[in-house]
Amino acid sequence: MQESTQAYGYPPGAARKGMFARVRRSLELVFFLCYAELHAERARAYLGFVWWVLEPAMNMAVLYFVFGVMLRTADAGYVPFLLVGLTVWQWFKSGVSHGGNAIWGNLNLIRQVKLSPLVFPCVQVLADSVKFLYIFALLLVLLWCTGYPPNPTYLGLVPLLLVELVFTLAIAYLVAAVIPLVPDLRFVIDQLLALLMFLSAVMFSADSVPPGIRKLLMFNPIATLVGATRGILLHAQWPNWSELASACAISLLLLVGAIALIRRLAHVYVKQAA
């Protein structure tokens, strides 16, 4: 296959300018589609966006009932411990499962118009991030009311959440890259995510597993992020910066790799059987 773009009769640099304009247009499209996505969810239920908060709140209430009331978990700190872990995990999980299906779900569109497939997973992950912010705010209020007041280490949340955003986007892109080629993988992804949840120390502390396995958990950015968020919110502890730096490096590498993969496969998706 040979394809070349020549700027016949155009000043030099026109091609690069064209690429810059294309990237800007794609970003504008991402933000507008994200607005449209959130608007859609609001329009699809009577209570609209109240559900963004109500649904996770009900989820938290169920867990509180099971672990706090029914099982009377010996450690009083377990419920907040669990809620922080679940909130952080839920963001990653919904970003990956929505973003991962996004290219496959928009194949018809990219067959009709020239659009970068990179747009679609990004829209989903951003929409899930906006919803996460609402849930996170609810979690903070809950913690303040139950004896975990705001503290100066809250500043550490900024890099922490940014790394989680990058990691979520990276994994969503990786999944989104392969699903159009092998749509059957959709049935496996949820199971893999469930497994990853146990490998991310969401339900239990990383300290409670044998040291050998604990080292392995260290390579999982989500385990690092869950642990560090708990440190900040529950113990006013600054994150371990070297662990956070390595999680950040892993996330960025995966993101760059996933973007390169999708760009390479972009012309394959449009020729795929419907």
Binding site: M1, Q2, E3, Q6, A7, Y10, G18, K114, V270, K271
Partner: peptide, 13 residues
């Protein structure tokens, strides 16, 4: 939208 699998395609910007 579709890239050729063989042959040559040249396009102006």
């Amino acid at each position: 939208i579709l890239a050729p699998d063989r042959g040559q395609l040249r396009r102006a910007t």
